[in-house]
Design a protein around this nucleic acid. Structure first.
Lengths: 230, 230
DNA sequence: CAAAAAAGAGAGCACCGCTCTTGCTTTGGA
DNA sequence: TCCAAAGCAAGAGCGGTGCTCTCTTTTTTG
């Protein structure tokens, strides 16, 4: 009688959260490949088969962690945008880029989970897609703001790309010129190229002052999407 | 006494090659996570323990595949460069970028192995590093050629980055101005950001005409390293 | 030709994901 | 209020994995 929603439902939520928490810790320590349902169960003091009441398979657990990671990254980028809300668009762009980088360096295994090799088979559940879009939306918003002001500077378009560019603009941000939509998507992928190379150690013995290097690259990325250097 | 080098040594080479070949096929079909020593041994008609005479662990087998993948990609990019050797540097740059993309799309699991999440622990044997440099060398060569001609166009440098830029230039290509070295490394990472997003499905429902999109992005990347549009 | 080195075969260990059955507890309707 | 239904934990067990150890056979070498 006590709790309205039923004590059992709440217990289920709590246990589900505890499982994800333990799994996330294992993920951070050992990586996705080493994440073991049995080890998670052991850490929680339950038997491994009991865990299947909460997640029907290891891949489902991983999918839950993937969605959480996308949300965490999205939140970090939104926080950076809001913290820089009074700055001009180029500075805001750089702030968000640095937030993405900072999050990735702080959570390398979770970053690998969402932007490295897709580990669970090849499924991309629809829920994942929505969670993945958050960072993109933040970037779109900044570019939109920037283009309201001084306008775009020096964005070109290869001949054959115009129809695709118009389609992309219509899908992504109808109020943006097609050139900007193309440049934005490219910059989006390139941002994660920079971050991924750093997180995955590809800059080893190539870039030393990675902080300064990234700041510079992010600034040039901003120019690339038409945000004229502040 | 027949063969000079010893029949056994040759047999060892052949078996090693056969193991790698079988492993590569499994890798292409199921991905690195599913690659199983036992399955490889089964396919070759030997018992799993015998395989340890050739590779001391599963990770060592994977490392061998990683090196081969780097070599294969490096070779593809060198072929593209040589095939376009008469074209002006910007066109050569684009050709190499497209070769990288083509190789990645043709060998997604091998691409994931080398540019996705680093799967075997966190070790990067020295041999791997040398193999990884090949694509980079091709890109450096093109930019060097380009800068011999008309010179760099509009490359800037953020204030604090100058010392790092000079260090990078000294290491990478002493005959290149520091601005170009920085731009080159950034473009290198960004190229693999574009390719990775496409291979790992991040462009799903975002970019449709990926061929045209990539061509455009590669062209802008060329401009970014100072190769003035042909 | 005999000693030494290399290779294969097999058993076995500890772990894994996952399924199925068996009891116990909570829940919700008659 | 009571009782069937549903939810959940536990245990045993299946087939698979990476890896180690021992034993035997084959090849190379002094």
């Amino acid at each position: 009688m006590s709790t309205p929603q039923g004590a059992r439902a709440r217990a289920r939520q709590e246990i589900t959260a505890a499982i994800k928490e333990a799994a996330r810790r294992q993920l951070a320590e050992e990586g996705a490949a080493k994440l073991s349902l049995r080890a998670v169960a052991r850490e929680l003091g339950m038997v491994s088969s009991a865990l299947y009441r909460y997640f029907p398979s290891r891949d489902d657990l991983l999918t839950a962690l993937i969605i959480d990671a996308y949300d965490s990254l999205g939140e970090a980028s939104e926080r950076a945008r809001d913290a820089a809300s009074t700055a001009p668009p180029p500075a805001r762009w750089i702030a968000v880029c640095e937030a993405v980088r900072g999050w990735a360096l702080a959570h390398p295994h979770e970053y690998a989970l969402i932007y490295g090799s897709p580990v669970p088979g090849y499924s991309a559940p629809e829920t994942t897609v929505r969670a993945a879009a958050r960072v993109g939306l933040v970037l779109i918003g900044i570019v939109r703001d920037g283009h309201r002001g001084p306008g775009l500077a020096g964005l070109s378009l290869t001949a054959g790309l115009r129809p695709e560019a118009e389609r992309m603009a219509a899908d992504l941000a109808p109020d943006l010129p097609p050139e900007a939509a193309v440049a934005l998507v490219a910059a989006w992928a390139q941002l994660f190229g920079l971050v991924g190379f750093e997180v995955f150690g590809q800059f080893h013995r190539v870039v030393e002052d990675r902080e300064a290097f990234f700041r510079h690259a992010a600034a040039r990325l901003a120019e690339g999407v038409g945000l004229n250097g502040s």
